[in-house]
């Protein structure tokens, strides 16, 4: 079931095409990574989903319905350019922002108390935002993003500027929100967090989608047929003859009697073929296929696009 369905969305600004007929679908209750270099069109797309700007053409569906103003109440948005009123008190400000999302004052107060206690920041309620450290402000920023229990959460570069402790807290909360039923879109450059959190991704470059799918399938798609194995008690004739399909033994490292090797193979070679080959030569400590990281796929895709242009 698709929660967000974007169909052929195009958006042009005065002198450039920000989005060129982009289509995406975000499955319900999943974490969707929106990747791409700076200026690729991620923020433009996010602003369209948030109805801050309207697309020139194309359509967006929210849980099956055409996107409408009332959907705003079901979206929580943590923009990349974020901040709070510096002179306003924390509690008052959080209440205000919650009410702007359509939560009535009493409910907002109750929910804020819950979140403030959860993050152990109740003591800041009557402090001015400018008196707080950046890390504290980020917690508040997160609380006001989720206070109205949105069904769709959009995080634009959520980890930029967060300290490692808050990054972990944020990750935990994002996963928890997903388990509670929320659908999450997040745009980032931080590829390790993509692998850790995302179920699906889309890669956008120069306003065009160049890749979409589940993290697993994309990694499979870009597999390089590279295997790694660790062996001990290796017999002396290991590596002299490689079976068919094994192209090269590209890396050898010996440490404390343990040998690490990397094989480059043909695409039909399976993990078990490797295992069968290795068995006679020693004790197998571990073996696995090396799949490209999202970072490698990202860089490779963007670079190859550059060459094409």
């Amino acid at each position: 079931m698709q929660f967000i369905d974007i169909q052929n969305v195009t958006k042009a600004y005065a002198n450039h095409l920000a989005l060129d007929s982009v289509s995406l679908s975000v499955p319900k209750q999943s974490i969707y990574g929106l990747l791409g270099p700076n200026g690729a069109g991620k923020t433009s797309l996010i602003r369209i989903i948030n109805q801050i700007t309207a697309p020139d053409s194309g359509e967006v569906f929210f849980d099956g319905e055409k996107l409408q103003p009332h959907h705003i109440a079901h979206i929580g948005y943590l923009p990349e350019e974020r901040g709070l009123y510096k002179k306003m008190k924390v509690g008052e400000q959080a209440l205000y922002l919650a009410q702007l999302k359509g939560v009535d004052r009493k409910t907002a107060e109750r929910k804020l108390k819950f979140w403030f206690e959860r993050f152990e920041i109740m003591a800041w309620w009557n402090r001015k935002v400018e008196e707080l450290s950046k890390g504290m402000q980020q917690k508040i920023q997160f609380v006001v993003t989720v206070i109205h229990e949105p069904r769709l959460l959009i995080f634009d570069e959520p980890f930029s500027g967060f300290d490692p402790i808050n990054v972990n807290l944020l990750k935990e909360e994002i996963l928890r929100l997903k388990n509670e039923g929320a659908t999450i879109i997040f745009s980032t450059h931080n590829m390790s967090s993509v692998e850790e959190l995302c179920d699906n991704i889309a890669l956008i470059n120069n306003g065009k989608k160049i890749l979409e799918g589940s993290v697993k399938s994309i990694k499979q798609q870009f597999r390089t047929n590279t295997f790694e194995a660790h062996l001990t008690e290796v017999s002396s004739d290991f590596g002299l003859n490689l079976p068919a399909g094994f192209n090269s033994l590209s890396q050898i490292k010996q440490e404390n009697g343990e040998l690490s090797v990397v094989f480059q193979c043909e695409s039909h070679v399976k993990a078990n073929d490797l295992l069968n080959f290795l068995l006679p030569y020693g004790q197998i400590v571990s073996h696995r296929e090396i799949l490209p990281t999202m970072n490698e796929i990202f860089v490779q895709q963007i670079e190859s696009q550059k060459i094409k242009n």
Binding site: N50, Q51, I52, I72, I75, Y77, L78, P79, E81, R82, G83, L84, Y85, K86, L97, L100, K101, G102, Q141, V144
Partner: peptide
């Protein structure tokens, strides 16, 4: 200008 420089503006225009 305050809303712009404090960067709260985008949070708000996503609500109103």
């Amino acid at each position: 200008i305050e809303e712009k420089t404090s960067r709260i503006i985008e949070v708000i225009v996503s609500s109103v």
